[in-house]
């Protein structure tokens, strides 16, 4: 039965490939994945400013000897911090997180046990990042009543699939976008929506708040023990449920690398690594489906 053996062969090969990657010294794997993120991340407007750090990251992948050199990571740190300081108002959150992680990798290379320093910093960076995200949602005043997500579903094209699935037509979304583009500083506009979007946005708001809060708590507090030991599941659940809908490659990639760096369980390490390697599939495929949906409904 060759047809049945082929998928089995594929999965065996895939498993062997993942095993070979995971067998290498942990810090080396983390540095490699981080270098790939540095090569691929970035903001269109800052492509020239980020060119030196991308070139250095490419060199590290091309000549593996550079990957564990302290001088390379010190240089990367200087470049990343320089870019962050010069462009701080233009950068989005994950650009900051990537810089912190580059700094943590650099410090780890000066440690007796680099993986221990990486694990410690990765756990705290995830915990703090999710803590501030949760804090912002609690304090902003427009998140808890669902108004942030409601408006975002109506106006942000990235979330238009939710609106379409909730029964809002493509014409209505376009009419809302036109209304918004004509809105002046004096006056109001009433957007066209429906009660289902209102309920879904409220539900999604509280789901996000709950999962982000749980990730923050489980990564920062060793007690309760049952939650701390299951922290990886929370992070993976957040990553899959968030970035399949809003595909932000760099954010998902850096969170998965941080997750892998602090992970204590071999099976979960494999899961983090596979999730990282398969980003081009699990992040892109839903977008293709959403695109088809828009074509069908629109």
């Amino acid at each position: 039965m060759p047809a049945l053996r082929e998928p089995r062969d594929f999965f065996r090969r895939w498993s062997g490939f993942v095993s070979a990657l995971i067998k290498q010294p942990r810090h080396q794997l983390i540095l490699k994945l981080t270098a790939v993120i540095l090569l691929l991340h970035g903001i269109e407007d800052l492509r020239w400013a980020m060119l030196p750090e991308k070139a250095l990251a490419a060199a590290m992948l091309f000549w593996p000897g550079l990957l564990t050199r302290r001088l390379t990571w010190v240089s990367l740190s200087i470049l990343a911090v320089w870019n962050n300081m010069g462009n701080w108002p233009f950068l989005v959150n994950h650009e900051y997180l990537i810089t912190y992680w580059v700094l943590a990798c650099t410090l780890a290379l000066y440690a007796f046990v680099p993986t221990a320093v990486m694990a410690w910093n990765a756990r705290l960076l995830i915990g703090l990042c999710f803590s501030f995200a949760t804090l912002w949602k609690l304090l902003s005043g427009e998140y808890l009543d669902g108004s942030f997500l409601h408006l975002t579903v109506l106006l942000d094209p990235r979330l238009s699939s939710i609106a379409l699935l909730s029964g809002v037509s493509a014409e209505t979304l376009q009419a809302n976008a036109d209304l918004f583009s004509r809105l002046q500083t004096s006056g109001f506009s009433e957007l066209r929506t429906n009660p289902l979007i209102s309920s879904i946005s409220l539900l999604l708001s509280y789901w996000t708040l709950l999962i982000e809060g749980l990730v923050a708590l489980s990564f920062l507090c060793p007690r309760p023990r049952w939650l701390y030991q299951r922290r990886d599941w929370g992070l993976l659940l957040f990553t899959f449920t968030t970035y399949t809908i809003i595909p932000v490659f760099s954010f998902a990639a850096v969170l998965l690398v941080l997750g892998l760096a602090q992970c204590e369980y071999p099976q979960r390490e494999r899961l983090y690594l596979q999730a990282w390697l398969l980003i081009p599939i699990w992040m892109v495929l839903p977008q293709a489906l959403f695109y088809l949906l828009r074509l069908l409904v629109g």
């Binding site: 950068l91 995200a133 912002w136 942030f148």
Partner: peptide, 10 residues
């Protein structure tokens, strides 16, 4: 912006 992780909150 500004590294406070306030995206998708406001």
């Amino acid at each position: 912006h500004g590294g406070g992780f306030g995206m998708f909150a406001s």
